Each structure stands twice: as structure tokens, then as C-alpha cells.
Simulated assay, not measured.
Amino acid sequence: MSYPIIKRQPARQWMEAPQGVSGIPPGLEYMSSLDQLIVKQRVEFGEMLSGLEMRNKYDVLNSVGQQCYYAEEESEFCHRQWCGPMREYVMHISDNSQQEVMRVRHDFVCCVGCCWCATDSSCGYEIQIEAPVGNVIGYAKQQTSKWKPHIRIFDANRQPLYVVRGPCCGCQGVCCTDDVDFPIRDLTEQNVLGRMFKRWAGCGREMFTDADTFGVTFPVDMAINSKALLFGCLFLVDYMFYEQPKNNNH
């Protein structure tokens, strides 16, 4: 597959790029002063009216609502309609100069998602994360578990770095409007370093769209590559747990 350059759409006020930051992959300077990123999926009215799955688009914000990045999925039409989260896709992530600074890749794999056998190379969701484009900085992969979501984050040499686990039930509804938390821990799983979460979007959006809001928190002094890996993993959480139910509703 060949992927065209994605042009971001006009949006809210953009965060000003930090100055005097060196030794960081181009475009990731924004992350140097951040301890949180909020990812808001855009509502696709064509999807609401037609029931067809459109390419996902996201605004990425800092804690005060300024936009840091824009992300857009590139995928085949038929894959989106019939393959759900198993589809092949590339997430293009660009900064305020419309420069693509990160890329998240997911290859099509048939019959994945079973938590009991997910560690097998052919039976678990996996993404590859690049920053800048073409430079692989790591991976995030679904792991074996009895029931709860279990993801591990690896560096470019596939050495494990972090463990992400989720709740038994990640559902939200009128009677359950709290954030759904996915704590981020070190390899001992004794120390919580941050969290990924899905926010309650309100009855209308939850029932009729898959335009969700996610977030990730991490220590402000964490290495930039590690922040980028956790940010990239957030898209894996979205596709694994919050894409398929809405597609079925169509």
C-alpha cells in the first residue's frame, strides 16, 4: 500500500512549539514540557448517516486545550467495513506545520484478539511506532491474559519497557460514566508510572458515533521516545476495545 501525505484540517489554537530543545526527534519537541495528551476523535457525520466506517481523525491536545498534533488514519475502504480493528492501517501524526512527525502502523492479521493466546506472534494485535517517519522506536503488543486487557510496550530492539493493563469491563453507559483506566506500570508491575484512559463522551456520542476521547499521562521528565511510545499505544487501545462495538451497531 502507498500512503499519500495527509493534510490536517483547520482546528483550535495550536500549542506554541518549545524553543531551545535539542536532541529530540523533529516534531516531538511539544512533548518535552507535557505530562498529558488528550486525543479527541472527530465526529464523522457521513458515518452517522450512512453507517459506513470512515477513516478515523483525531485532534491531539495538551492539558489546557491547545492542539499539539493532528492524526488521521489511512486504510482501505473494504478493510474498514469488513475487518474492523483487524484491518491494516497507518496512523499519520502531523504537527502544526503539517509535517508528519510520527507514524503508527498496524498490519492486517486474521483472527486476532483472543486474550488467552495473544502472545503468539500471529494471535495478538501489534503496532509499530516510528518517530520520525521511517525510524522505528518501538512496538506495542497485546499479551496473554485470563480476562483483563494486557499490553506490553517494547523498544526498537523488542526489549520490554512498560506494562499496560485494563479493567475486566471497559464499558461505559448512563449508570457508568467514570473514566475507563488503563494503568501504565514498570516491568515489575509494582510502580504505576501513568495511565491511559477513555472518557465518557455523553449519551448521544456514545450511542450514535465512535468519536471517543482518550488520554495518556506520564511523568513530565520521562524520555521523549517513551512518551511517544505511550502516545502511540493509545491508538492501539482505541482500535482494540472501542472500534468493533460501534461497527457492529451499524
Rank of each mutant, 00 (worst) to 15 (best):
M102T: 02
Y3W: 15
D59R: 11
Y239F: 14
G202P: 13
C203I: 15
Q66T: 06
G138D: 00
M196I: 15
L229N: 02
T213S: 14
G173D: 09
Q244Y: 12
G138C: 00
G65P: 04
Y242T: 03
S121M: 14
T119C: 13
N247A: 08
T217Y: 05
D95C: 10
R185E: 11
V90Y: 10
P25A: 08
G46L: 08
P183T: 04
R165G: 06
Q81C: 10
G46A: 03
S94W: 01
L234Y: 00
F197Q: 15
Y69L: 07
S33G: 13
D155F: 04
Q142E: 04
Y58Q: 06
L229Q: 00
N135W: 01
R185T: 14
V39D: 06
G27R: 09
I6G: 04
M54D: 14
T217K: 09
V174F: 08
T188M: 07
V220S: 10
V180M: 07
K148P: 05
W116T: 12
Q172S: 08
P160Y: 02
M15A: 15
R152S: 11
R103I: 07
M86R: 12
M54A: 15
V101N: 05
C233K: 02
Q81H: 10
A11L: 09
G84V: 05
H106Y: 00
D181M: 15
V112S: 01
I151Q: 11
I153K: 05
D59Q: 13
F218K: 13
I6E: 06
G65A: 09
G113S: 08
F182G: 06
K57Q: 14
D35I: 00
W116Q: 13
D221H: 14
N135A: 06
D221R: 12
K246I: 12
L49G: 01
R185A: 11
W82D: 01
A140Y: 02
C83L: 15
E206S: 08
M31R: 07
V163L: 06
S50D: 07
R55K: 12
V133S: 07
G194V: 03
V163G: 01
V180H: 05
F231C: 06
E74K: 11
S94N: 07
R185K: 15
Y69E: 01
A71K: 05
R105A: 00
L61N: 05
C171G: 12
V136A: 08
P85E: 11
V64Y: 11
A118I: 09
Q13R: 14
D120R: 12
E88M: 05
M15I: 10
R199W: 10
R12C: 15
L52V: 02
V163K: 10
G134R: 02
L37Q: 04
Q142F: 00
I184N: 01
Q172Y: 12
N135R: 02
V64Q: 14
C110I: 09
Y89K: 10
E126R: 15
V104Y: 03
R12I: 15
A118W: 12
F241I: 06
Y3R: 14
I129W: 00
R103Y: 00
D221W: 08
V174C: 09
R205D: 07
T217V: 01
G65L: 11
C110S: 08
I6Y: 03
G113D: 03
Q142H: 04
C175A: 03
S33R: 14
I129R: 02
A140D: 01
V174S: 09
A156L: 05
A131K: 00
H79T: 06
C175L: 15
L52F: 03
C171M: 08
K227Y: 02
P25N: 03
V64W: 08
M102C: 09
R165A: 05
C111W: 11
